[in-house]
Amino acid sequence: MEKMTLFFTELLDHDRDDVICDQDFDPFFEKLAHFADWSADSSEFHIMLEVKREFIEQFINPLPPK
């Protein structure tokens, strides 16, 4: 349980409000790009931004009303 709490807090919940929102993903994806040594103009970086956008759209944004 401690490992999951650490993962949640350190990688996903940067503002420490116990809720993951789209702003929390900026530092996470910045860490990924830094770790992979991708520059902001690399194709890999732009693919990562697309993945981030889709991830937020699918998992963070509310579902449309039925």
Results as ranks from 00 to 15, higher is better:
61 N>S: 08
40 A>T: 13
60 I>Q: 03
24 D>V: 05
17 D>F: 03
47 I>C: 08
18 D>I: 01
24 D>P: 03
31 K>M: 13
20 I>P: 03
38 W>N: 01
52 K>C: 06
47 I>H: 09
24 D>Q: 04
45 F>H: 15
29 F>M: 11
24 D>L: 04
14 H>K: 10
56 I>G: 04
1 M>P: 07
19 V>D: 04
43 S>A: 12
18 D>E: 10
53 R>S: 14
39 S>Y: 01
51 V>K: 09
15 D>I: 03
60 I>K: 03
21 C>I: 05
54 E>I: 06
10 E>G: 01
47 I>W: 03
34 H>D: 09
62 P>E: 06
28 F>W: 07
56 I>S: 03
53 R>A: 14
40 A>E: 14
26 D>K: 11
18 D>V: 00
55 F>E: 00
33 A>R: 06
26 D>G: 00
49 L>F: 00
15 D>N: 15
4 M>K: 09
61 N>K: 15
4 M>W: 08
16 R>K: 14
55 F>L: 14
20 I>N: 04
30 E>N: 11
41 D>Q: 13
16 R>E: 07
31 K>E: 10
8 F>V: 02
8 F>M: 11
15 D>Q: 02
41 D>E: 13
44 E>H: 11
45 F>Y: 15
49 L>Q: 15
41 D>K: 11
9 T>E: 13
59 F>R: 10
25 F>E: 04
10 E>R: 10
25 F>H: 06
32 L>A: 04
6 L>C: 05
14 H>L: 06
55 F>W: 10
39 S>C: 01
19 V>R: 11
13 D>S: 05
1 M>R: 06
63 L>G: 01
22 D>R: 10
60 I>H: 05
1 M>Y: 04
51 V>M: 11
13 D>C: 09
44 E>L: 05
57 E>C: 07
12 L>C: 08
6 L>T: 13
64 P>V: 07
15 D>W: 02
12 L>M: 14
59 F>A: 09
44 E>P: 00
15 D>P: 02
11 L>D: 06
52 K>R: 15
1 M>H: 06
46 H>K: 14
28 F>P: 01
50 E>V: 02
52 K>L: 09
2 E>K: 12
38 W>P: 01
6 L>H: 10
57 E>F: 08
9 T>W: 02
19 V>P: 00
61 N>W: 03
5 T>I: 12
41 D>W: 02
23 Q>W: 01
23 Q>I: 04
58 Q>A: 13
25 F>A: 03
58 Q>T: 07
34 H>C: 04
49 L>T: 06
38 W>D: 05
11 L>H: 09
17 D>P: 02
58 Q>L: 13
36 A>R: 10
33 A>S: 15
11 L>F: 14
64 P>A: 08
1 M>Q: 07
11 L>S: 06
2 E>S: 12
59 F>Y: 12
60 I>M: 11
18 D>T: 05
5 T>E: 13
35 F>Y: 10
